[in-house]
Amino acid sequence: MRNSKTFIRMSGLGGQGVVTAAHILGVAAVKSGLKCTVNPFFGAEKRLAPTESYVRIAAEDIWERGEVLFPNIILIFHPHVITLGKCYTMPFFAGLQQGGKIIINADRPLDLREEELARLRGLDAEVYYVPATQVAVEAGGTALSTNIAILGALLAVEELVSQEAIRDAIAERFGGGKFVASGTTAVLDDVLKSKFDRLAQLIEKNMAVVAAAGGSVSQYHFGV
C-alpha cells in the first residue's frame, strides 16, 4: 500500500542521539521541500535503554503516525542492538520491505546467523556497515556525533536530502532555543554544545563527520 515513501526506523541505545538524528533528518527533508513526520518513541527510559525513532519522508502528504512497522530503511546505531538483542523489535530487520536497506554502526561485518542471512537474501536487502562511532571520534572529536555519522552513511547509500540541507538542520537544531525535547535529551544537548567553542565549530565538525562517514560505508556481500 506504500507509494514512493521512505519509511525509516532508527534503533539504538538511549543517549546515542537516535531522537536527534531523526529530528535533523526530518528538518533537512522539510528544508528540501519534502513532506515528513518524525516520531520518536519514547518511554520512561534512561541512558543505554533501547530506543527507537521513526522518520517518514515522501513527496506527497503523509498521514499515518506511530511506529514504522514496515520500514524500507533501517539504521542500527549500536551493534548491541543486534548482538545483545538490545532492541524490542526482533529480529532487527523485522518488517523490512522488499529491497530495503540496513545500515549498521559496526567496525566490521557482524556475524549474522545463516537463517538471518537467508531471510535478508529473500528480501533482496542491501546491508551496509559503517564504523560510525570511530568516525565520530576521529572526525568530530566526540562519540556524541555517532548519530551524525549514521546520517552521513545514510546519505551515501540513499541521497534522501542534500548535505547542505543536513548542515542547515544541524545549525537550526543546535543554534537556537527552539528545539523541544524530553528533559534528558535537552540535557544531552547542553553537554554536546559544551564540547564546542561555538556553533560554527560544532557545525563544521559535524559536517566533517557526515563526509567521513559517507566515505566509510561498506556493503555486506552475502553470497547467494
Partner: peptide, 10 residues
C-alpha cells in the same frame, strides 16, 4: 508494573 517502555513488546 511499568509496561511503558517505548517499544512494541511492552
Amino acid at each position: 508494573p511499568l509496561l511503558n517502555k517505548s517499544n512494541f513488546i511492552s
